[in-house]
Simulated scan of single mutants.
Amino acid sequence: MSTASKAMAGREAIAVKGWLQAHKWLLLRRASQTFFLLIFLLGPWFGLWLVKGTLAGSLTLGVLPLTDPFVTLQGLVAGHIPETTALIGALIVLAVYALIGGRVYCSWVCPINPVTDTAHWLHRRLGLAKGWQPKRSTRLWLMGTVLVVSALTGTIAWEIVNPITLLHRGLVFGIGFGWALVLGIFVFDLFVARHGWCGRLCPVGAFYGLLGQRSLLRVTARDRVACDDCMDCFAVCPENHVITPALRGKGSDTPLILSPDCTNCGRCIDVCSVDVFAFTHRFDTNVSEAPATPADTRAA
């Protein structure tokens, strides 16, 4: 796909479906990300403590504990036994993301995602080269390294440099190292490695990807026979290698995107002018049949 074509991705969908329909899932994701960020900021900003804590660990309405299971895992390997409420919170989060898809966290909750999405959008607009691409397994190695460091130091190591936590602190307390780190991630994704942070490096994304391998929520290319090879889905997908098996499959090949790398962001659904993609569940393997040709009709 040419650089110009990538920059134009989604234009046909806008013409066919209208701007809102061609951005429906993107707008819903931005609303979700904004909601989760603001609900944590209502307390320190306005004194309205609906939720106390951060995405690493929180208490909602003084009743519902929620704990990042990756944080809990680091604590366990560091030799710390979590309190009962923290353990319950981790189990709740584990169950939710195991059900709906681990990397849903990356595209619907994580406040760093809009930063990396903006970098990718600008990367396409400027027509920049693909750049250096670390292996996707790098994030798994970094996840393992984080756990080893936690075990050796007795600390929850990732929280020291976690850009999500540092961004939260920056929004609460003002200018700090967190903003510099967020800017660094933006520059890295823009000039060094396309989708480099979320797709290649982030250990949190690696953990949630493993967590959601058997999740129910899936994207399907059920109507792949209608595909006109515009390649817009590949241009906008942050993990575009996950599309090919479902979209290019033949006959009884599953139309489901089953890779744990898929973030269920829905952008492939948005930008497809012929509605090839849709959200479904992992047991829905239905595929639309190819429309009958004049030759088929005559033969019948």
Rank of each mutant, 00 (worst) to 15 (best):
A4P: 01
E12P: 03
A13L: 12
W19Y: 12
W19R: 11
R29C: 02
F40D: 01
L41Y: 10
F46D: 02
L48A: 15
L55M: 13
S58R: 09
L59A: 11
L66F: 06
F70P: 08
T72N: 11
L73I: 08
A78P: 12
A78F: 08
P82C: 10
T85M: 14
V93W: 01
Y97N: 05
G102K: 00
R103D: 13
V104D: 02
Y105W: 12
Y105E: 08
P114G: 07
H120P: 00
H120I: 02
K130E: 09
Q133T: 07
T138H: 04
L147I: 04
V148A: 11
V149S: 13
A151E: 03
G154C: 05
P163V: 12
T165G: 14
L166K: 03
L167T: 09
G174W: 10
F177P: 06
A193T: 13
H195V: 04
W197V: 00
C198Q: 03
P203E: 08
L210M: 14
L210A: 14
L211T: 11
G212N: 01
D223C: 11
A235W: 03
C237Q: 01
N240M: 01
I243S: 00
A246I: 10
A246C: 12
G251Y: 09
C272N: 01
V274Q: 04
F279T: 01
N286G: 08
S288C: 14
P291E: 13
P294M: 15
A295W: 10
